[in-house]
Every structure is written in structure tokens, then in C-alpha cells.
Design a protein around this nucleic acid. Sequence first.
DNA 1: TCCAAGACTTGACAATTATCAAGCCGAACC
DNA 2: GGTTCGGCTTGATAATTGTCAAGTCTTGGA
Lengths: 232, 232
Amino acid sequence: MRSESREQVKALSLFGDMSEAAFERLLAGSYFQRFPAHVVLIREGDPADFLHVVVEGGVELFSDWRDRETTMSIARPVSTFILAAVIKDAPYLMSARTMEPSSILMIPSENIRAAMTADSAFSIAMVNELAVCFRGVVKAQKNIKLRTGVERLANYLLRLGAQQDDGGKVTIPIEKKTLASLLGMSPENLSRAFATLKPYGVDVDGAVVKFAANSDLKDFAKPTPLIDDPLA
Amino acid sequence: MRSESREQVKALSLFGDMSEAAFERLLAGSYFQRFPAHVVLIREGDPADFLHVVVEGGVELFSDWRDRETTMSIARPVSTFILAAVIKDAPYLMSARTMEPSSILMIPSENIRAAMTADSAFSIAMVNELAVCFRGVVKAQKNIKLRTGVERLANYLLRLGAQQDDGGKVTIPIEKKTLASLLGMSPENLSRAFATLKPYGVDVDGAVVKFAANSDLKDFAKPTPLIDDPLA
DNA sequence: TCCAAGACTTGACAATTATCAAGCCGAACC
DNA sequence: GGTTCGGCTTGATAATTGTCAAGTCTTGGA
């Protein structure tokens, strides 16, 4: 790995406080690489050879069964994916592909497991990262099981609004068909869901959606931190 | 805690290899208690004061939103629940109630976090437990998003068959309405789903369900280890 | 500039799932 | 024994969601 990249990686501080030597051992045999959009990085069922870290861009995690496919989540900088598979030395449960040109750091699984036994600060950092991931999936599961499609969309828009804060408008950062799959509906249904939200002050123009932050939409969506707050 | 209980707890080996002293510190201020059926142990949104361990019986983890409720998972001996909340010192994302008379070990969250910083074997045990939990939710999420209700039921029956191995019949260990909620459908629909599976050799009599293990049902269900194998 | 591919939308229709209502049945209780 | 309650099932109906089939629009390339 180029030393320039090495510095960039170290700045991520994903791995807790590590000694210089431990850090060096961790990154031995790693790759830090740029990929174009729409490249499949890993396929579910494959052995977990590398821990992946999204440093730049965006990665879609998805799964298949028979002839169906669904988007499980979106990984944005800086976050790891498929950490659990690496730790358990088990097959990936999800596939991953870049949505845009992306920089990905790949660390050999063996290094991760070795660093955990060697460095307790590191294993604590892993516990924390995993706990965040776990709570993320639980929230997603609650979202799917407790809400209708339209309700999921409404809350998604509010979440976007909270993180973009662009004065009454948000820009959807992914393709609509990916969003549809993430929200657990067909693309056709997503279009209709937007239409359903029109009476609540939602106005769509391509990827740009206008709505008032404290509005009818919020009354309709009834967001709760236990599902919608990414930090809680 | 009675020393008898203490021995029982130590035998669980949930916590990796710990020194006697560390084990003692971990359990200080813990409770090991028997509860009757249908008692709410924790409520989502509450601060995570205790890590809970199901030692005997069965616990239903469920969530609410507005006037809806859904069963998220079933915790059986010996497993922890709400570990992630404890680690992050964050509110519980799920509520929990006993389904039957159950023995529950409750360890103060503070002890868990202290043990993690003090004992690296312990934090590695926590990483592993969390990784298993994470993969469990991911599988549940795939199950919900990729399959219809009938398909989820078929695969649930096959999973029961694999773990009970009672010669062509299984006994559903939970109430049908809980099962319906776990599978993401209404109780009425669960009844109909059983009826739909009749042509595949499924025969229901109360909680007892008969079907051949290598059968039409398996052809219909198309199970995959990446969703249905609890160990993978 | 034009074309081709694919994203997005809309309408018509079908499948799936939920809701409401009624009835059956077994367990718990008096 | 009789009664009540709640779990479970079934039928009828409604709501939700998915599928198929256009058609529009944008984008990228020839």
C-alpha cells in the first residue's frame, strides 16, 4: 500500500488506539483500491477473506434468493461491512457492489482476528462497531415489520432531512429503484408512495424532494428514535 | 446470589475463560431469578441497566410502533439478549417477556463494560456473541424481505424438523399467534398458510405438524444455509 | 445529431395479505 | 357440570402490494 494511502487509512480511527507496530501488522497484506461504479465486490456465500472498509463513495449490500433480490443496506464512508462474517470466519450473508466510484480498504480477515487476540483496545473497538451494526439491522427490521411502505418512505424522507438540512428540500442520494428495494417495495410502488404523500406537502422532482421539516409529513410519519435515529 | 446458582451460571461458559476473581467481579450485583410466564422483563426505550441471560425457559423479544406490535425473535437457553444496548449504554430497542416460567440471569451493564476493558478474553467472547446475534438478524431480515409468508412458514417447519428430528413430525414450541408475528403475518394468515402447504404433505393437528423431511415441502421451501442454518 | 438503453412513471390487473365477523374448541375456574 | 375466556380457524371482504405493459424522459455513445 502506498504510504500516502496508509496515512489516510490511519486517520480513520476505526480501530481504536493502536501502537504503530500493531497498526503495521494489521495492514500487512491489505489492499486500498479504487473501483468504478457497479462493480461487485463480494458475493454472498463466499468465504470471508477480507474485511472491507468504505473510505470513499458508496456500497450497496444486497441479497438474493431464487430469482429475487433485495437491498439490505447502504454503506457510506467511513464504515466497515461484513465484519461479523470476518469474525466468525463464516461465509458472507450479503453481496456488495459499488454504487459509485469508490475507494475500498480490504484487510485480510486473519489480521483482524489476530489483532483481536493481541490488542484488547482493538477488540473493544470491534465490539462497539458490531453493536452499532446490530442495532442498525434491528431498526431496519422493525421498520419493515411495523410500517407500511408509505410510512417507511415518509420516515426515510424525514431522516434525509435531518442529515441534509437543506432548507425544506432533500436530495435522494441513491437510485430510486435501489431505494425501493431498500424500503422493501417495488419501484412502481415507490412512485405511488410519493404520490400518496403529496397531500402531506411532499413534492418530487427527480431526486429532489421538497417538504417542510415540521409539517403534516411528520404527523403522518410518526418517527421514533428507536427506529429512525441512526445514533440511538 | 446463592452459591448453587453461581455454580450453575459459571457452567454456562458464555463468558470465555475468566479468572475466579474476574468472574466474581462480573457477577457482583447480579440477580438470578425465576419468573412466571407472561412477565415483561424489559421495555424498549428503557436504559440498558442489565444484561439478561436466559438460563431456562423462553423469552419473546418484541417491538411496538403506534398500535402495532411484532415479535422480533425468541431467546432460548443459553443465550443473552439486548447485549448491544448494554455495550453501547443505549436504550433497549426491543421489549422482552417470558413465554413460560423462566430463569433469568441479570448482570449489571456496568460490570459487562468493565469486564471488557479488564479482560481481553471476555471482550473477544462478547465480539463472538454479538457477531452471532448480528448474523441472526440479517438472516431474519432476508427471510422477511425475500420470501412470502407461506415460504417463511415452510422453511420454519424444516428448521424445526432439523432440530427436533422426531421422525416425520415436529411440535411447534410457541403459541401460533406468536409464530405468526415472528413470521410477519396475521394469525389468520398463518392458518391459511398451513392449509396452503397441505398439498405438499403438511398435516397440522394443534401444535403437532407432520411432514416428510425429504419431501415436496423441501422442494417448495428451497431452504438455503445463508438464511436457514442457525450456525452458518 | 441521432439512437439505444435504462430509469422512472402510470394504468390495468392479479396476487398477497390484512381486517372483520362468526364459530369451534379446549383449558381454567366457579 | 357448567361457564367463561382466549386461542385458533374459516369465510367474506377490503386494503396493500406486486406484476405486466405501455409510454416518457434522460443519458451516454456512435
